[in-house]
Simulated scan of single mutants.
Amino acid sequence: MDVSVLDRLPAPVQAELDRRQAALPAIAALVEADEDEPVLLAGSYATGEWNPTSDLDLLVLTKRHRPRRAPGTTNHPSILGDSFDGLAGDLPVNVEYVSAERLHDLARVLANTTGDGGTVDLPNLQALEIRLVQRVHKGVALSGTGELDRYRAWLDLDAVRSAATALAFVGTLSLLGDTTVLASPTRELMCRGAAESLLMSAVNAFGPLTHDGKHLLTRAASISRLSDVPELFGRIEPLLFAERLPHEEALGLVLDLAEDLYRSFTDPRCPARVLPMLAPFVPAWSWTGRTWPATEHGLAKTGRAFAGEGA
């Protein structure tokens, strides 16, 4: 890659690279990209959330199936593409290559979320897929902006935020159900997982698209400073340590916060499709003894329309 592409890095990132003595030519030598292929600054350096252990993440949206492996790098192939780790000085650099074909496959999954009879299906997105959408939409474009705009238009961010929120919420109720039949210490492990999953659901509902725990607490703390947010954001510590309570008390706490979060999904700040995606799961939650307001024809009565459907 031409080193001049890296001149478009945000000034704070360039200052951090200078401080780390990470030479731009050394970074450019790790990247293979054609002139018209989008190259994005991704990850923590793109969001301004980096710390001393953060990699510099670069994403190349490529028409190639397999780029060359730069000398001295290691590859972590996945179903989405190849991901190479290298060094520029002492700075870890990750360069990920994802083909336009994989983006199109993901776009096709998202387009199929609308089911029969007005229902909205819940796509079973995995963490790598959610991360990819986050990086495509929130990454800093260094080249290929025309192509990037086209790819961003393919990937429905509201559908992905809705799915990430709903999947984590379903996971919460599933893990809580496990705590009612499993013995200690597995019961406490499931309770901890349920609490983390509920926080993940809440952050995706009210904040940026989030796929793992790295920035979960800092993002939740930022959301807690907003007005009129779910109770959960004011009780993060009790939630995350709920497994230390007697089981019935822990179960009651997490269910209380889950019920409150569920009711908040009608908030206009939340992605529009969460409640319709959750509707098929509601009957299975009768064991909780809680109220999960019904939806009509799978659509929440919020007055909001989905993207492309009048709003």
Rank of each mutant, 00 (worst) to 15 (best):
273 R>A: 10
3 V>F: 02
279 A>T: 15
27 I>C: 01
254 V>P: 10
257 L>S: 07
302 T>R: 01
193 G>E: 03
190 M>V: 00
21 Q>S: 11
88 A>F: 08
188 E>F: 10
274 V>W: 01
55 D>F: 12
66 R>H: 14
152 R>P: 07
271 P>A: 13
247 H>Q: 07
81 G>C: 03
205 A>F: 01
32 E>W: 04
252 G>I: 03
33 A>R: 12
47 T>K: 11
229 V>E: 00
114 T>I: 15
28 A>L: 03
141 A>D: 06
204 N>G: 05
132 L>R: 01
245 L>D: 09
236 I>G: 04
205 A>M: 01
81 G>V: 11
97 Y>R: 12
143 S>E: 03
54 S>Y: 05
225 R>W: 09
58 L>I: 13
188 E>W: 03
311 A>Y: 06
222 S>C: 07
131 R>D: 08
300 A>G: 14
29 A>N: 00
176 L>G: 06
279 A>S: 15
175 L>C: 04
70 A>R: 07
77 P>E: 10
39 V>T: 13
252 G>T: 13
19 R>K: 15
255 L>N: 01
39 V>F: 07
91 L>N: 11
14 Q>S: 13
290 R>Y: 07
211 H>D: 07
303 G>W: 10
177 G>C: 01
200 M>T: 08
239 L>R: 06
264 S>Q: 05
294 A>R: 14
149 D>L: 14
164 A>E: 02
85 D>G: 13
165 T>Q: 02
232 L>G: 04
118 G>W: 05
28 A>K: 01
199 L>K: 00
121 D>C: 12
208 P>Q: 02
141 A>E: 06
249 E>Q: 15
294 A>S: 13
180 T>P: 04
77 P>R: 12
79 I>N: 13
76 H>G: 08
159 A>R: 09
112 N>G: 15
264 S>P: 06
125 L>C: 05
289 G>C: 09
14 Q>V: 14
139 G>K: 01
27 I>L: 04
52 P>M: 05
281 F>S: 08
45 Y>R: 09
184 S>P: 00
70 A>D: 11
24 L>C: 05
107 A>D: 12
234 G>S: 14
295 T>E: 03
290 R>K: 15
91 L>T: 15
32 E>N: 12
11 A>P: 08
265 F>T: 09
145 T>F: 05
119 T>L: 11
80 L>V: 08
247 H>D: 06
116 D>Q: 06
174 S>R: 14
39 V>P: 05
180 T>K: 06
7 D>E: 14
241 F>C: 13
30 L>A: 05
148 L>C: 10
190 M>A: 09
143 S>D: 06
83 S>D: 12
19 R>S: 10
193 G>N: 13
72 G>S: 04
154 W>M: 12
255 L>P: 09
287 W>H: 11
217 L>K: 14
292 W>K: 04
58 L>A: 06
242 A>F: 02
80 L>H: 04
3 V>I: 10
150 R>D: 03
265 F>R: 00
27 I>S: 00
50 W>N: 09
87 L>T: 07
265 F>P: 07
192 R>T: 08
241 F>Y: 15
264 S>E: 06
37 E>S: 12
74 T>G: 14
299 L>I: 15
215 H>Y: 09
14 Q>M: 15
207 G>C: 02
156 D>I: 07
26 A>S: 12
270 C>Y: 11
281 F>Q: 02
134 Q>G: 11
282 V>S: 04
59 L>M: 08
